[in-house]
Design a protein around this nucleic acid. Sequence first.
DNA 1: ATAGGGTTAG
Length: 703
Amino acid sequence: MVLTTLPISISPAKALTAITVIPQFPQNPKTLILHRCKTTRDLNQVHAHLIKTRLLLNPAITENLLESAALILPNAMDYALSIFDNLEQPDSLAYNIIIRSLTFKQSPLNAIVLFNKMVENSVQPDEFTFSSVLKACSRVRALGEGEQVHAHIVKCGFKSNGFVVNTLIHVYATCGELEVARQVFDGLPERNVMAWNSMLAGYVKNERWGEVVELFRKMLESDIGFDGVTLISVLTACGRVANLELGEWIGEYIEANGLKGNIALVTSLVDMYAKCGKVDKARRIFDGMDRRDVIAWSAMISGYGQANRCREALDLFHDMQKANVDPNEVTMVSVLYSCGVLGALDTGKWIDFYVKKKKMKLTVTLGTALIDFYAKCGCVDDSVEVFNRMPSVNVFSWTALIQGLASNGQGKRALEYFKLMQEKNIKPNDVTFIAVLSACSHAGLVDEGRNLFVSMNNDFGIEPRIEHYGSMVDILGRAGLIEEAYQFIRNMPIQPNAVVWRTLLASCRAKKNVEIGEEALQQIIRLENPHSGDYILLSNIYASAGRRGDALRVRNQMKEERIEKVAPGCSLIQVDGTIYEFFAENKVYPHSEEVYNATHDMMKQIEAAGYVPNTADGRLDAEEDDMQQASVSHHSEKLAIAFGLIRTRPGTTLRILKNLRVCTDCHNATKIISKVFNREIIVRDWNRFHHFKEGSCSCNDYW
DNA sequence: ATAGGGTTAG
């Protein structure tokens, strides 16, 4: 068909946004339609014109129209579909356009439906058709449909087509069918780098790290070469399995071959170093990048978090903002993690606010991070609030919520959510049960705990791990059933570890059981290098049983055997967004005098209210440094609370974070402080919370 | 017209 002059007259009342006059239909009609149609209405005009001039009978023109509607304009998919439906005999090109746009824009499932229709109508698919429909299968993880497409690929003779097979590998990998993907890969007569990369990416997606490394070695042997994309997959694996050797080799390769401009590649190098514990090296590489995008920043922030260097993570987040790089949901997840570890309530709240203000999508991951963050700051009501406003939740979110409630002493409420979770047909997993058992422990629900422990295996098919046994010991011990807990350990089908015995030892301290406490410490010593805390627990058991001589003997034994001391007692409190750090005794602070005076006054006031220092085992408690003979009244926790009392307005909740467990004397004192000063005091120790209020604590004096 | 890639949660 020869195109001649096409006068398009447009009535002034319905002026087009883009098109005014088209003096001549161009040689390539695509440029006209694609470039000048800015809105559906423009397209409508052109469409009308094409019908009027019968140009629509030309398939090439029709396809251009279709492509404009389906792929170029943002909201014209329905329009495209109506054009398509009116075609008498759409050819494969027309099908391809619609399948491709359905895949990416609207509904991958409909793309698959259309592909089947295409086959029914005996229109020959080509490599473009297969690639598109396979992408659709990947997006909805439609394994069965993918397999059917696979059959057509074989029938139509495309099973060696690089493009098609690549996408096919992708489908199988996305659906977790790595063995099938590998068969397809192995069956290729010629494998280019893309094919290898797809296979590697498939292993990465399924966290089969060992296979990534293995396949990469084969790739090196096969002499096919590799590229930056290959290295990204391999570096990801190196990070996860801590294969620093291979990771460093790749790092040198990147350096030597001038690949440092590949921002994605260098980011995965940063990630690899961070995950292998070389955070400083990661930071040097990060600093050496000539451009850093949001992913690079997020990777480095997350690296600090994983290395337990959360303050640096937050500092870096601050730098990121100064660099004017907008954070995304992923960045926020890492920042919230660090906020949670540090108990940085203000910063995390700010993130929550920012997420709302910027209308960021509350993804499952981000929501779960918020739930966990609030719970780690002792604000479980906020956790629940976040949970309720999340558009969708998964087992991670439920588990975070249940765990958060449990660790904050709300065991019963945690179990209610567990029940609700089952009503919503969300299948709990092994970690959920750790949370649930911990809830039973906090709520003192022994029978419930026993039943759940049995049920997790019988009804949910989850084999209890050592952590579950540990939780069960905690449940029994907390309820005072020390003997039963001991027998439970003895009868465990798997080898108990030191953590389990330590749990028992802690319960012996709370319930003053000397005999089993002694046994527990023996077992810990047998299994691993004991902590000084273990000796201190036993020493406290003796002290509380009035056996002061034995208590001192254990302390001396600890010294003689040069048991490594735990980190010195340290408490953090945030006042007006600043984190203040306190250590037990003999430390000088910027506000030393103020702090010690405040502590002195505070102790005087609670003594007047009936507080008696527990010198008997207080002197031997966790935070003591025996060389210094520190006084219990100068435990870091008391200093932090005293500081909080004078630096905040009356009635303000005090939030303390400490690195060790709370000592008996501090626990007792804090209860009285909460009453005398009428303050809520929330203390987070190394694994649980104490909510002090009106003279009592949420832990019911067991921790 | 079509291919593979980096950061995230319990």
